[in-house]
Design a protein around this nucleic acid. Structure first.
Lengths: 111, 111
DNA sequence: CAGGATACCTCGTATTACTATGTAAATATA
DNA sequence: TATATTTACATAGTAATACGAGGTATCCTG
């Protein structure tokens, strides 16, 4: 069963920056990569992805460049910036802390 | 540093149901318990907590009962329902799957 | 030539955390 | 005793954002 939509909020950024940090990627490719790497768990919607990419670009964390294939069609490849790399580090740290904190509550441990 | 507000969305429910599942609790107590159990990580705001409790009650996952202390003041104790227990199980399963999936992306692993 | 896949975009809606603000009583402090 | 803090609840407004629905255009395959 698919995760609730609210759960994704706050993690989208980390996911996108993580992928783009490995190598420049275009939107459609990111959707496929998220699906592949998470073994089908993440099926990002276009209405989620594209606005999210635009927000990241507006904030200077990534830069998009149009590239035309020999065949003719165009893709917008996103590259991470230095600011984006710093943001990614912070986001991953934030995620780990948050994840640990949630587990400290939902998992049975010390009373 | 505190987590971003968006990160909490989707997890609030699991956190609240987890605590109330252990024992009936009132709002103010939940804030303190979340703080204590997470070692200061979660500092829930009242504007987050109370509306969230009302939503859970509206959906029949918890039931609130006013209790008057000998001193005189009133507290609204929330009890989990059977429906709430089932929802909690689902939520925790969802959280584990989501958490694993995010880690599969943000943590360096197989390409 | 038709249909699917690729590839991008945006508007509107729903959800929800948080700030600010309000109320009221109990307890601690000066 | 007067004042401040803590306890305890509540809600209206704002901002952020995932998603559905809809749109455009090109490429590839049967």
């Amino acid at each position: 069963m698919r995760y609730g939509r609210e759960l994704l909020k706050g993690s989208t950024e980390s996911l996108l920056l993580s992928l783009i940090n490995r190598q420049p990627m275009y939107g459609y490719q990111i959707i496929k990569e998220l699906d592949r790497r998470s073994k089908g768990y993440f099926t990002f919607r276009e209405g989620t992805l594209y606005p999210a990419l635009h927000r990241l670009e507006d904030r200077g964390l990534i830069i998009g460049r149009w590239e035309r294939l020999p065949a003719g069609q165009e893709r917008r490849y996103y590259h991470i910036t230095e600011k984006g790399q710093r943001a990614l580090e912070e986001k991953v740290t934030e995620w780990r802390g948050f994840s640990r904190a949630v587990n400290s509550i939902v998992q049975p441990g010390s009373p």
